[in-house]
Simulated scan of single mutants.
Amino acid sequence: MHKILGKDEYAPYYQSYVELVSEEDFDNLLEEGIDKTSNLVSNIAEEQGMLRYADNKWTIKELLGHMADTERIMAHRLLSVVRGDAVSLPGFDEGNYVQAASFNEQSINDLLQNLQAVRRSTIHLVKSIDADSMLKSGTANNSNVTARAIIVIILGHEQHHCNILRERYLSTV
């Protein structure tokens, strides 16, 4: 069992993200996370943005766009859960989202600014949630999820992709 979350608070396919987060100081972790991501990405040259570490893998630009899209969707889920919306929230196909976007035509700086803006919005939302509402749950992608689990998933998703960026993209440059 995870230190913060019970297994019934999130779907099993989020386990690898959840395992990357070991504390519950969400405000601080969200701030630190975007700072670390920004520092990592700000050192990437524009021409490196089109790098793929293997065939059929996303470019660095697509990875950054995916990170922002996913956080936007997760923040919407978080808002819905804490506001008590009983609707079952849909899943999304990340591959289709990336394919439908024009991330490769954007600059790394623009993609980073977008990700930073999304994170600032997420931080404001998280700061507005009281302790009782953190335990509220809803349904997303046909699975039960609590508000605090969504925040942990946002944090773990970012860490996961920054690890991939460091290990698979930037280690080859």
Results as ranks from 00 to 15, higher is better:
51 L>E: 13
51 L>T: 15
52 R>H: 14
52 R>C: 14
53 Y>H: 11
53 Y>T: 12
58 W>K: 10
59 T>A: 08
60 I>P: 15
60 I>W: 09
60 I>M: 15
60 I>A: 09
63 L>F: 12
64 L>F: 07
65 G>W: 01
65 G>I: 00
67 M>K: 08
67 M>Q: 10
68 A>C: 06
68 A>L: 04
72 R>N: 05
72 R>G: 06
72 R>H: 04
72 R>A: 02
73 I>Y: 06
75 A>C: 07
76 H>Q: 09
76 H>Y: 14
77 R>T: 06
77 R>I: 07
79 L>Y: 14
79 L>E: 12
81 V>F: 05
81 V>E: 03
82 V>N: 04
83 R>Q: 13
84 G>H: 11
84 G>P: 14
86 A>L: 11
86 A>E: 15
87 V>H: 14
89 L>H: 10
90 P>Q: 13
91 G>C: 10
92 F>W: 14
93 D>T: 12
93 D>V: 08
94 E>L: 07
95 G>P: 05
95 G>S: 13
96 N>Q: 15
98 V>E: 04
99 Q>A: 15
100 A>L: 08
101 A>H: 05
101 A>Y: 04
102 S>N: 14
102 S>P: 06
103 F>N: 08
104 N>C: 08
104 N>A: 05
105 E>C: 02
105 E>V: 01
107 S>G: 12
107 S>L: 08
108 I>E: 07
109 N>G: 07
109 N>L: 11
111 L>N: 07
111 L>F: 06
113 Q>G: 06
114 N>K: 09
115 L>E: 03
115 L>Q: 04
115 L>T: 03
116 Q>F: 01
116 Q>R: 12
118 V>P: 04
118 V>I: 04
119 R>K: 01
120 R>T: 00
121 S>C: 06
121 S>Y: 00
123 I>W: 01
124 H>G: 02
125 L>E: 01
125 L>S: 01
125 L>A: 02
125 L>Q: 00
126 V>H: 02
126 V>C: 05
128 S>E: 10
129 I>N: 02
130 D>Q: 13
132 D>K: 14
132 D>P: 10
134 M>Y: 14
139 T>M: 12
141 N>H: 07
142 N>P: 05
142 N>F: 07
143 S>F: 13
144 N>I: 15
144 N>M: 09
146 T>C: 10
147 A>K: 05
149 A>I: 08
152 V>N: 03
152 V>K: 01
153 I>K: 07
154 I>E: 00
154 I>N: 00
155 L>F: 01
155 L>M: 03
155 L>E: 00
156 G>C: 05
156 G>S: 09
157 H>V: 00
158 E>T: 03
160 H>F: 04
161 H>I: 08
161 H>W: 11
164 I>E: 13
164 I>S: 07
